[in-house]
Amino acid sequence: MIARVLALVAAVSMVAGAFVYRYGLPGGASGGSKAAGTVVCASELGPVCQSIPAAVVEPAGTTTDRLIAARGPDETELLAWLAPGPWAAMVDDARKLANKATLFTGFEALGRTPVVAVAKQGRLPPACAATPSWKCLADAVDQDPRLLIGADTPESPSGLFVRAAVLNGFFGDASYASNDLDRAEDLLANLEARVGQARARNATDLQRFLIQAPDVAVYLTTAATAGTPPPTVTVVNPAPTTSVDAVLATTGKLPRSFDKEATARSLLSEGWAGPGSGDDGLPSPGVLLALRGRLS
């Protein structure tokens, strides 16, 4: 009898475990459960996600890993995903690489924000003071070990894209390929060393950089994240402009409850600009995927 009860408990546990595995809430979820036909919103978009009814909110990197691992589109039950940057295209590239079916059929930018350098007054590298550019920042990273630059971790969207912007400076533009990244090995290593030192001196995020990290000169982030900073810092937009789009990627028909206009308005209120017309200035999704792999 006891054995039967134990067997029943084990069976129920297995079913429950399978259910949690299959439908379990992703980390940090604040919206509805991941039932059939979900809309996912990247937690890095902050309050913008509140404009999407019943959205599952989770970090873009978490969604990315989950979607890459999924065996097929049916397993994801995903209808749409709003994230800062071309994460959905990166997922599709990763799936192609693994000979898996791609997931997304539509991509639409609902907003755009440039990648910027937030610098303490007078602390930009001298070569960047007059005409800030990603090249002079890349050169400074390579040549000046005293320059401490803060940035979010490369697992985050802003962290990944600011590194891509620095690489734009190194290569001259964003047309470099993933197999060119070997040439930037030393730059990437130096950049991670500077960022690591900056983090050790409290610049673990923009707010701490502003308040608690006097040794750290510059923090790389997006204009939307920088918002309106205090007068002790300047926000510069290094050339060539590199931007991040808030991309709504869809796997089919968007649910009626999704109000794109409301989401776009929410992006504007969070410091994003409207959708840009030209190229975002980032390297291709495949390159970003490779860069993410190198930095992880």
Partner: peptide, 8 residues
């Protein structure tokens, strides 16, 4: 040729 890779 992986995504993002270009022949050189």
């Amino acid at each position: 040729l992986d995504p993002g890779e270009q022949p050189r």
